[in-house]
């Protein structure tokens, strides 16, 4: 139950709820904890609640570090 799953907001939220695509399945999820989400945003979903917006820039920063590790290993 503790594992969050990334999902993408597909429609603008109405009344604190939004339709979210979680690995191909659409679910109605509470966005009360991430009030400013928009369609297209990725969120982390836990037991029917979006707990955090996933930050694309930060994700890229982590991937850049991983790419650096590969480059260092090849050098």
């Amino acid at each position: 139950m503790c594992l969050g799953i990334p999902g993408q907001v597909v429609e603008p939220p109405i009344g604190g709820l939004a339709r979210i695509d979680v690995s191909g399945v659409r679910r109605e999820v509470s966005v009360a904890f991430v009030p400013d989400v928009q369609p297209g945003d990725w969120v982390l979903v836990h037991v029917g609640f979006a707990l955090a917006k996933i930050d694309e820039e930060e994700a890229r920063a982590t991937l850049d570090l991983l790419a650096e590790a590969i480059a260092a290993e090849l050098a």
């Binding site: 990334p6 990725w42 994700a59 890229r60 991937l63 991983l66 590969i70 290993e73």
Partner: peptide
């Protein structure tokens, strides 16, 4: 980005292990 597969690259795993 789908925030899953990108973080599973086997080359990166081996580089970190090294």
């Amino acid at each position: 980005m789908r925030y899953v597969d990108e973080f599973r690259d086997g080359r990166a795993a081996h580089a970190i292990a090294a």
